[in-house]
Amino acid sequence: MPRDITHLHHVGHVVSDMAQAIALYRRLGFHVPPPSVPALAPREGAAPEPFGAANTHADLSRNFVELVTPVKPGHTAGLPPDTRIVPLQAPPEKLPVLLSRIEATSAQLGGWRDRFEGLHILMFSSPDVDGTADRLTAAGVGHGGVNTVGRPVETPEGVRTEPVRYLEINGAPEGRVGVVADVDPEFQHTRHLDHPNGAQDLVEAVLCVPDGQLPLFRERYERYLGRPVSAEGPVTLMTRAELADLLPGEAPPVLPALVACTVTVPDIARVRALLAENGLPARETGRGEPFVPAEAALGAALIFREA
């Protein structure tokens, strides 16, 4: 039977200072464009003010790592000067609902950031998100149904809106977990894939769970994925003791927590040299792969795997 969840769509790294986070990811060897943030005029005739959440992506071949931070109305501290302000455009009757959703998202991001700075978003990719929604419902997994949002995308023809269809699973204590429709091929040419570190694919998210709860989390993720959790990914579940074997020195501040993600690269030696040149520490995983520890990467360890 074909799998309706095939790989990771993205992980979300919630940060306090977007400018600092972008600088870090560029030192890690990623191409990261300036962030975008929605804006709304506080009164008629006034200039739009940023609010809600600012985000940007390190795009990979079929997925991405998202950097995101909550933004209080009119507050731009921590946003780089080249942040793209996106004025909200919506019919007046729909604006209150849109504002409510953006404010709820911002509050949720703020809560996660206060819990710890790091990974709080885990989204899987599906070629048939409607079919995935039906399967999850049949498996007793609560979710909010399939929604569609528009994402502004810079193209040679100007800014276009990419439709993004997704669902969010209810009640995951580790953060936002859900499923997104595969990246639209029509917008593939707009993605920046020329990373200095050669990054190609996001292949694994590592979730550390409390002792004694591993079977519960495994059963839950097997229902999410529709198949057994395996060493091939896209999610690796482990206890704190197992995490110490995989990522020596890592100690999540709270549990459960998404503690790391893995990207593939064509040349590990090139990555090691880049990290050393940029003054970033590289430890060795229990699998023999280099990783940058969470303490040097704003709370989220980054593993590099040779493809």
Score class of each variant (00 low, 15 high):
M1I: 10
M1Y: 14
P2Q: 07
R3D: 15
T6E: 14
H10L: 09
V11P: 00
V11M: 04
G12Q: 00
M18Y: 03
A19N: 08
Q20G: 05
I22Q: 03
I22Y: 02
A23M: 08
H31A: 13
P35H: 01
P38C: 07
P38Y: 05
R43Q: 13
A46E: 05
P50W: 03
N55L: 09
T56W: 03
T56A: 06
N63D: 12
L67Q: 00
V68W: 00
P70C: 00
K72Y: 01
V86I: 15
P87C: 07
Q89P: 03
A90P: 06
P92F: 13
P96G: 08
V97L: 12
V97T: 12
V97D: 12
S100E: 14
A104V: 10
G111M: 07
R115N: 02
G118A: 11
L119F: 02
L122W: 04
M123L: 11
S125E: 12
S126N: 14
D128C: 14
V129Q: 12
V129W: 12
D130R: 13
A133C: 11
A139P: 07
A139H: 09
V141G: 00
G142T: 05
N147L: 13
N147A: 13
P152K: 09
V153F: 04
E154M: 14
P156L: 08
P156R: 06
P156S: 08
R160D: 02
T161H: 10
E162A: 08
R165C: 06
E168I: 10
E168G: 08
I169C: 08
P173H: 11
G178R: 03
D184N: 15
E186V: 08
F187P: 10
H189T: 07
T190D: 01
L193F: 09
L202V: 13
E204C: 07
A205H: 08
V206C: 04
L207Y: 10
V209T: 09
V209K: 05
G212N: 13
P215L: 09
F217S: 04
Y221L: 11
R223H: 12
A231P: 03
A231Y: 09
E232D: 15
V235T: 09
A241S: 14
D245T: 13
L246C: 01
L247N: 00
P248T: 01
G249T: 05
E250M: 02
P256S: 07
V259C: 04
V263Q: 01
V263R: 02
T264V: 09
P266Q: 10
A269E: 14
R272G: 10
A273T: 14
L275M: 15
N278F: 08
L280N: 06
L280P: 01
L280H: 06
R283A: 14
E284D: 15
G288T: 10
E289G: 04
E289F: 05
P293R: 05
A294Y: 01
E295Y: 11
L298V: 02
L298P: 12
A301G: 08
L302K: 02
L302N: 00
I303S: 07
A307P: 14
